[in-house]
Amino acid sequence: MGSLSIWHWLIIAGLFVMFFGAKRMPDAARSLGRSLRIFKSEVSQMQSESTTPANAAPVQQPVQELQQAPVAQPQATIVQPQATVAEPQAQPKSL
Rank of each mutant, 00 (worst) to 15 (best):
K93N: 12
L10T: 01
Q73I: 14
T77F: 10
L10C: 04
L10R: 01
K93H: 07
F20I: 03
A86L: 12
A22K: 14
A90E: 07
W9D: 00
P74I: 10
I11E: 06
F20V: 05
A83L: 12
K40H: 14
L32A: 07
S48D: 13
S31G: 13
Q75F: 01
K93C: 06
A29C: 05
S94W: 08
P81N: 08
K40A: 10
Q64W: 11
A56Y: 06
A72V: 07
Q73G: 06
Q68W: 01
G33N: 12
L10V: 01
M25H: 13
L36A: 11
Q82K: 14
Q60M: 06
G14C: 05
S31C: 09
A29M: 10
M18E: 06
M25E: 09
S48I: 07
R37W: 03
A69M: 05
T52H: 05
I78P: 05
P53K: 04
I38A: 15
L66H: 08
A90I: 09
K93A: 15
A28P: 02
L15A: 08
M18S: 07
P62S: 09
T77Y: 11
S44P: 00
S5W: 00
M46I: 14
I12W: 00
L10Y: 01
S5V: 00
M46G: 12
A90R: 11
G21N: 01
W9C: 01
P58L: 04
P62H: 07
T51L: 10
S3I: 11
E87C: 06
G33V: 12
N55Y: 04
G21I: 01
T77L: 12
P81F: 00
S5M: 00
M25P: 02
S50F: 09
V63N: 05
K23F: 11
S5K: 01
S3M: 12
P92H: 09
V79M: 12
I6Y: 01
P53F: 03
A86Y: 10
A13I: 00
N55Q: 10
V43S: 08
A69N: 07
Q91N: 10
Q89M: 10
W9F: 04
E42Y: 13
R24Y: 13
P58K: 03
S94I: 11
Q61W: 11
A83N: 08
V17D: 02
L4Y: 05
A83P: 10
S94C: 01
Q80G: 05
I38T: 15
V17T: 09
M1P: 09
Q64F: 07
A86C: 06
V71A: 08
F16P: 02
I12A: 01
H8M: 00
S50K: 08
I38S: 07
Q45M: 12
S50G: 04
S3D: 15
S94F: 04
Q89P: 04
L66R: 02
R37F: 04
G21P: 00
I78T: 13
